[in-house]
């Protein structure tokens, strides 16, 4: 198993070719590539996209056990979507009823939509996981700053990352503190779990409020101003300047956008990526 490094967002490989890319490339990857499945209904295309993502994980030396951590989420997601479409997908006389549970009709047409939507989401989620497992925290801020977003937005993004990190640590301590008071969530049934979960919010928010005072003092004491300006000039962008956008970045960004354009073009000009072209639509029952 390759050595992994813990990061706030997940686990990072120690070494990866992805690290040599500019953060802005990675941020754009998240924004652009996660749009692909949203524009593509064809399940085969999304499945192919997912397989491509897995190959990308491999190439970036991200341990696939990272994805295994999300296994239950993937399984649950499918059931949630399938159930939602069964209940709210509606019914028409021409639908094929696979199963009847009292008043509930499980129809193939609804299930098919569930599969389509599910595969779209799987690809999108894989893109997000990939982003989280190749992105160091500072990359987020550098990426946003390079995109010329207002300074306040970038800085708040960075500060929230930092506070999420602190809150995660708090969360584990609070959980232990609950156990020490004879409450173990793991021993409770699901409904109780949800109810008790609210209890975490009290100390989490309390700790955050107490910390806020110190954080704002620390910001002020280092001459921080929300405007990003100070008397007589603009704040320096030192960290982003350390990163260089290179040929590989330009090429990759170009490819991402070109592919996006291709998807839009192919879809609206020829309709190749529409759901009806799927093999699933050839499946007939009885």
């Amino acid at each position: 198993m390759p050595k992994m490094r813990r990061s706030l967002l997940g686990y990072l490989p120690e070494e990866s070719p992805i690290f040599s890319l500019h953060p802005v490339t990675k941020v754009l990857f998240l924004l652009v590539v996660s749009a692909y499945p949203m524009l593509t209904q064809l399940p085969e295309a999304n499945l192919a996209g997912s397989l491509f993502m897995l190959a990308l994980f491999k190439a970036a030396k991200v341990d696939l056990s990272v994805i295994k951590g999300y296994k239950m989420a993937f399984v649950n997601l499918f059931f949630v979507i399938a159930i939602a479409y069964t209940f709210f997908g509606g019914y028409r006389p021409e639908y094929t009823v696979l199963l009847r549970l009292g008043p509930i009709r499980v129809c193939w047409e609804n299930l098919r939509w569930a599969i389509l939507v599910y595969l779209q989401l799987v690809l999108a989620i894989l893109v997000i996981i990939f982003f989280l497992s190749t992105m160091r925290e500072r990359d987020v801020v550098v990426g946003l700053r390079t995109l010329r977003l207002p300074f306040v937005v970038c800085y708040l993004a960075g500060l929230s990352l930092r506070s999420i990190g602190l809150s995660i640590i708090d969360f584990f301590t609070i959980r232990e503190a609950e156990k020490a008071r004879a409450l173990d969530l793991a021993e409770l049934p699901f409904s109780e779990k949800v109810k008790k979960f609210g209890l975490y919010i009290v100390p989490l928010v309390g700790l955050a409020i107490r910390r806020a005072e110190e954080v704002s003092n620390a910001l002020d004491s280092r001459a921080f101003r929300f405007s990003g300006l100070f008397k007589g000039g603009k704040r320096t962008d030192y960290i982003p300047k350390k990163y260089k956008i290179r040929g590989a970045d330009v090429a990759l960004i170009a490819i991402m956008f070109a592919f996006l354009a291709a998807i839009v073009f192919v879809n609206y000009q020829y309709g190749w990526l529409r759901a009806e072209n799927s093999l699933l639509y050839r499946v007939r029952f009885g």
Binding site: D170, I174, E176, K179, D184, V202, P203
Partner: peptide, 23 residues
């Protein structure tokens, strides 16, 4: 069980704010 342990060994955390949940 957690309830057995909690009645045998009490653990007081460094920061009281981690263990105050109630109103």
């Amino acid at each position: 069980k957690t309830s057995y342990l909690a009645t045998k060994v009490g653990y007081i955390f460094q920061n009281p704010d981690h263990q105050l949940f109630n109103d």
